[in-house]
Write a protein that binds this DNA or RNA. Structure first.
Lengths: 140, 140
DNA sequence: GTTGGTGCAAAGGATTTGCAACTTG
DNA sequence: CAAGTTGCAAATCCTTTGCACCAAC
């Protein structure tokens, strides 16, 4: 099942309406190869002769983030589709500092280790955010 | 040696001028207990009867970041003084989602493990950015 | 038909740039 | 005194809010 199809199913199952703007944002994120900002998405649509209000794009992205269908990449300030779909645990990124290409992964051992460190420092850990940067295979 | 003193020494040793605005931004960051934005710093100064142009604050923070004297906390969108000074390796954070309190640490084993994962996925790793969130001792 | 979603207008921040004037070493 | 910094003005971009209208279920 494709990313868009899966996302639509999740929307429906949670009681959210499956609207044209939501489908279009999903398709735009699907096509993107690097993290895209709300305005990037707006421009992508214009180039295809469509138009979406930027406020709508913001709101759709917020919703998709809250459902873990897309992620915000903080080091780049943009959004990407979730590439791990239902896989549990913290989703992490490798980001190419040259071309922006992104690879998503999750790793239980890492979560465990980070949680241990947090507890040792008096924290009760909840989430781990990791974005490693470097060079991807092609840019190396 | 205090954070401010250390930072001034680093500026000097790298050939940067030690100016009044730079010292004042350093002092503001020193006093902050949670990550602060450039405008936060501006307001902190006003409250003390001083004034700094926001553009200057942006530029000073950029410089201090590039020298690793302060860090940008992406999950909170603010800056903090570096609490590990010259300690090598990637600096990481625990951030309290309640009060914003922040603890900095570094961990060699974690760096190693993350690098391994990156290489297995075809990446040449350079930096690891980690910001775990949870509850600090007091907010728990 | 209802409820939730969207578009529009507008406001409020955040961030950047160019240039003249000033300060530090 | 020279080079590096700062302050100001202004432009640009990002993000959010309120409300009237519209579309999906």
């Amino acid at each position: 099942m494709s990313f868009v199809q899966h996302s639509i199913a999740v929307l429906r199952s949670r009681g959210y309406k499956v609207t044209k703007p939501r489908k279009e944002v999903l398709q735009a994120v699907e096509r993107a190869t690097v993290p895209v900002s709300p305005y990037d998405i707006g421009r992508m649509m214009e180039r295809r002769g469509k138009h979406l209000d930027h406020v709508t794009i913001y709101r759709v992205l917020d919703l998709l983030c809250s459902l873990n269908l897309v992620h915000k990449v903080l080091s780049r300030g943009g959004f990407v589709k979730c590439g791990l779909l239902d896989r549990p645990g913290c989703h992490r990124f490798l980001v190419c500092r040259q071309c922006g290409e992104l690879q998503e992964f999750s790793d239980e051992a890492l979560c465990y280790q980070e949680s241990q460190i947090a507890r040792n420092l008096g924290f009760q850990p909840e989430h781990h955010l990791t974005e490693s940067s470097g060079l991807c295979r092609r840019c190396r």
